[in-house]
């Protein structure tokens, strides 16, 4: 009994840090990133900015497929609606980009709520997958055919913005702040009773409800959160590419987004960040070999899923216990 009590004390201290644990060492990375731009040329800077866009796209997607564990694939719709939403608010209403960020998130969140309806009504697995895929395709069809608004498949030009959004290098700092905010907010969400409710729903919905969790409300919330974060990613994408067209939101794009989540580590927030970095940046190395990029991309996915089914984040967890208990669970 005494030894049990004694061994409990340190275990308890460790568990007490589970929530809102301050691990200042993790802030080192964003601080170091602040000094990155001078070392990059414009193209490299653009790639890094795209990584930051995909950080949001990945962590949002992960909430639904990784944490809630639902086979819902409307992510590309949230992304597209956020992108078009931001671009249209700028082009048609003359809003400054900064004012379109939250609306883009809200548009994404609304799309999240709409696509959560089948899931809330009990649709699961392949049926949910095909319904949510169809929604994504329907949105792409809309961008193509609502020509008066979106200029159809020609694509629309995003008005150029003033400082600090005028150059890739300046945008980088804005994007970095948004990515950090999204990561911190999602981390807090997932580490709280909301995250536990998501995980409980993934584990066993009947048991989750028996524990007093209103499962439908949490499914809706998970989709809305996902849509919000990804929609903001869309606003970043709009200002970053300057030219928005429907093919950016097709099936191939969805596969890339799914790969970000899977390669990083399904269900892991930091995994999605890693997945975004690796899958966006690595293929760029082979940019001068046409066709080779896709090959690298495909081989990378196969290798990671074969040898690290828990994603690249599991590798980090093996290397450092710091990652293991902060960001990764077996």
């Amino acid at each position: 009994m005494d030894s049990a009590a004694a061994s409990r004390a340190p275990a308890r201290a460790a568990e007490g840090r589970l929530f809102f644990r301050r691990r200042r060492v993790f802030w080192l990375l964003p601080v170091l990133l602040l000094f990155l731009p001078p070392f990059l040329n414009q193209y490299q800077q653009y790639v890094v900015n795209t990584v930051l866009v995909y950080v949001l796209v990945g962590i949002g997607f992960n909430v639904v497929v990784g944490n809630l564990g639902l086979l819902a694939f409307s992510n590309v719709a949230y992304f597209g609606l956020g992108t078009y939403g931001s671009a249209l608010l700028m082009a048609k209403l003359g809003w400054p980009w900064a004012a379109t960020v939250i609306p883009a998130g809200i548009i994404g969140a609304l799309a999240g709520v709409i696509t959560s309806i089948p899931a809330v009504r009990g649709v699961r697995l392949f049926y949910l997958a095909i319904l949510t895929l169809a929604f994504g395709e329907l949105m792409r069809w809309t961008y193509v055919h609502w020509e008066s608004l979106t200029n159809g498949s020609m694509g629309m030009t995003v008005p150029s913005a003033a400082f600090p959004l005028d150059t890739d290098r300046h945008r980088f700092y804005v994007f970095l702040v948004l990515a950090i905010l999204a990561i911190v907010a999602t981390d807090r969400l997932l580490r709280s009773r909301f995250g536990r409710a998501f995980e409980a729903i993934r584990g066993n919905e009947v048991a989750a409800a028996a524990m007093g969790i209103p499962t439908n409300r949490y499914i809706l919330l998970g989709f809305a959160w996902s849509g919000f974060i990804v929609g903001i990613g869309g606003a970043m994408f709009a200002i970053s590419v300057g030219q928005v067209s429907p093919p950016s939101f097709n099936m191939q794009e969805l596969i890339l987004e799914f790969a970000v989540v899977m390669v990083g580590g399904l269900g892991s927030l930091i995994g999605s960040v890693i997945g975004a970095a690796v899958l966006t940046a690595l293929p760029q190395i082979f940019i001068s070999f046409p066709g080779f990029q896709e090959l690298v991309f495909g081989v990378m996915i196969i290798l990671v899923l074969l040898f690290l089914p828990r994603g690249l984040v599991s590798l980090l967890a093996r290397l450092s216990p710091l990652f293991a208990d902060r960001f990764y669970r077996e």
């Binding site: 568990e15 969400l189 709280s192 009773r193 909301f194 536990r196 409710a197 995980e199 409980a200 584990g203 066993n204 048991a207 989750a208 028996a210 524990m211 007093g212 969790i213 919330l221 669970r329 077996e330």
Partner: peptide
Amino acid sequence: GLFAERTALENVLVGLHAAVPNNL
């Protein structure tokens, strides 16, 4: 009924869901 890949503590925390009136 249990969440096997979670710790005992986390399982009990799920049980406490309704007792943590935390707002989003």
